[in-house]
Design a protein around this nucleic acid. Structure first.
Length: 644
DNA sequence: CAGTGAGCGAGCTTCCGCTTGACTT
């Protein structure tokens, strides 16, 4: 009979840990949070009318929260309660981060244990680490719990204070939040840049050369000492930002034609050695990015597939912000690399990686194959298939590569010259060769890009080559690309907005609220998000500021250290002179027409009314209403406008 | 008398982060 009850967050983790602890211990899972702020509409009738009614937080009484057992969690809670009845000790082994500490505290509050309680923490799941953790327990860190509660309260205050403002001023059902609103704003800002972008055109000339049966291309780089324009020569308004020569299409065509059969002399050949380091092992964010780039998976698909691999015991936990590997994982990577790629493929000392995100909490390891020695993907070919196998292999490769040697490359640049029609023309060609593969043997970044890296033949200064073919090409500068799921997750992580468990959910939120649509891989803002973003920028600049979360995190850290007081901080945030409540109260009457109107161009305004978007066009002092299909997106409308 | 309309009150929408498994497509 088990005498000691251990509670962790994840059932899969419970199963593993149970093996390491023996029959004295019963290991159960809380399955995430068990309690949360009540929904105001579900408050008991007497509380609904009182100060709790708006937020389930008593803002006048030190922001005292009103918690309830989360929907669907009463069964888990009663199972935990009955397990506790037979136990002599309780170990709270939730994750060692802010949320985990809070879960432990909520468990205490709900279970009210009468036996000794220990807070047990570990950040890798190995027999040694677990046994060490069970004999080195501490007590709950109340400051850390307060920091979590502050985070939770801020999110409720922001979301439930500002969303109703949007209902009143713009349209029913809209939402705003600390995380979703900056995410939406990023997408809107990118679209604004695209709408304002003016393309510039320029032409280039490429000569096809051959030596030693190696064909390669050389590009015209300058004419009479003047450099030719490239994509970086123009700004977003299409203006030149460098002193360069811009070839017009006709000019390029004539010049190219006259160069066919010309003889180019090699002026210089320079080889530059470069090294490349392997990438850090996967975190949630980088896994989502690479699963998208290499396997074409959405953030949700990547997470669902990883979850399945985790639950079946193939990989470690998939929601993590730490790229750190345990000692055991480092050894496993090194031995896999040595066995498959040779002893010299391994870096001479273990490589350590630190989190790059400023708000990382690092409660878990990096995402890697589980176990003390990694199963090669081919061993799992009969057990896994399709997406699962592909994702496992990606994780396996990334992990093994992270302990391998730098790749050594050499980039050779050759310059050619010719005097043509009285002017000195310079061409240049470059090629890269891999001198030593190193980690590239396991994780080749370039293998999936379409064009293989160009190679150059051996060339000597003074040597002359004949241009067999000379081709002109017209180019135009491109507006900044729209965010994809993967690039948005990357940007959010860089700003410290959102957490590994929510990256995929943030995207679903702004899509399901109708703010953003996915077209192919691109995230495209709907008109309503222009309106909402502009409104938030004007009235709640603080909230949509990308720095907001980072600043909040800073203060939460100080609360966790006991340097700052929870209720004082919240009081200032909500009741301060420039606090949330003051801002909302000072909004006053605003012209709903103005808020809903987005000036597209002189005399053409877009309005996002309750019945969908439409255009108001002023023609000869007459107002004309033009309905537009809701599916239409900003850039399409711009094009359409130009056509009509 | 029947139809209209002003005025009022009630109910609905909403946040982020931690988990999995039960749903539907």
């Amino acid at each position: 009979m088990a005498k000691k009850l251990v509670i962790v967050e994840s059932p899969a983790k419970a199963k593993t840990i149970s093996k390491y602890l023996g029959s004295d211990f019963e290991v159960l899972a809380s399955v995430g949070h068990i309690r949360d702020l009540a929904e105001p509409k579900e408050l008991p009738a007497d509380k609904k009318k009182g100060p709790l009614g708006k937020f389930s937080i008593d803002v006048d009484n030190d922001f005292e929260p009103f918690y309830t057992i989360s929907a669907g969690k009463s069964k888990t809670v009663s199972e935990l309660k009955s397990a506790l009845k037979g136990a002599e000790e309780l170990y709270l082994a939730t994750d060692e981060d802010r949320e985990g500490e809070a879960i432990a505290w909520h468990l205490l509050e709900v279970l009210k244990p009468k036996v000794p309680v220990h807070r047990m923490v570990f950040n890798e799941i190995t027999k040694d680490a677990i046994q060490e953790a069970v004999s080195n327990t501490r007590s709950i860190n109340d400051n850390l719990v307060e920091a979590q509660e502050t985070r939770r309260v801020v999110d409720r205050l922001v979301g439930y204070e500002i969303s109703p403002v949007l209902w009143r001023k713009i349209n029913r059902g809209l939402s705003a939040g600390r995380v979703q609103s900056p995410a939406m704003r990023m997408i809107v800002e990118r679209e604004r840049e695209r709408m304002a972008f003016t393309e510039a055109s320029y032409s280039s000339i490429t000569a096809q050369l051959q030596e030693d049966s190696v064909e390669f291309e050389a590009k015209l780089s300058s004419i009479a000492g003047e450099k030719l324009a490239g994509s970086k020569s123009f700004d977003e308004s299409g203006n030149l930002v460098q002193k360069v020569r811009v070839l017009a299409p006709a000019e390029a065509e004539a010049l190219a034609a006259s160069l066919v059969g010309a003889s180019l002399e090699v002026m210089s050949v320079e080889a530059k050695p470069t090294t490349r380091k392997p990438y850090a092992p996967f975190t949630t964010s980088t896994l989502q990015q690479e699963a998208s780039r290499k396997l074409g998976m959405s953030a949700k698909q990547a997470m669902d597939t990883a979850q399945q691999l985790y639950q079946e015991g193939y990989i470690t936990y998939m929601r993590t912000d730490s790229p750190n590997l345990s000692q055991q994982a480092i050894s496993a990577s090194i031995s896999a690399a040595k066995e498959l790629f040779g002893a010299d493929s391994v870096h001479d000392s273990p490589r350590l990686y630190g989190a790059k995100s400023k708000n990382a909490q690092e409660a878990h390891e990096a995402i890697r194959p589980s176990g003390e020695s990694f199963k090669h993907p081919s061993e799992l070919a009969s057990l896994l298939h399709g997406r699962s196998l592909a994702l496992y292999e990606l994780i396996w490769r990334r992990t093994v590569a992270s302990q391998m040697a730098d790749a050594k490359l050499s980039t050779t640049t050759a310059k050619f010259s010719i005097t043509h029609q009285g002017e000195e023309l310079e061409f240049s060609a470059s090629g890269t060769t891999v001198l030593f593969k190193g980690f590239l043997a396991a994780y080749d970044e370039t293998s999936d890009t379409k064009e293989p890296e160009a190679k150059l033949p051996k060339l000597d200064v003074g040597q002359k080559l004949t241009a067999k073919e000379v081709l002109p090409k017209n180019h135009s500068t491109q507006p900044p690309a729209r965010y994809t799921e993967a690039s948005l997750v990357k940007a959010l992580e860089e700003q410290g907005i959102g957490r590994p468990s929510t990256y995929a959910a943030i995207i679903s939120t702004i899509i399901s609220k109708g703010y953003v649509v996915k077209r192919g891989n691109a995230l495209v803002p709907e008109w309503i998000s222009f309106t909402v973003t502009r409104f938030l920028e004007q009235n709640f600049g603080n909230l949509v500021d990308y720095e907001f979360t980072a600043k909040m995190e800073n203060d939460l850290d100080r609360i966790a250290l006991g340097e700052l007081d929870r209720s004082g901080w919240l009081k200032n945030f909500y009741f301060g002179d420039e606090g949330l409540q003051a801002v909302v109260n000072s909004l006053g009457e605003s012209d709903p027409r103005a808020i809903n109107t987005f000036e597209l161009a002189e005399g053409i305004a877009l309005r996002t009314g309750k019945f969908g978007p439409y255009l108001e066009v002023m023609e000869n002092d007459e107002r004309r209403i033009v309905n537009i299909p809701e599916a239409l997106t900003p850039d399409e409308l711009t094009l359409k406008r130009l056509r009509s």
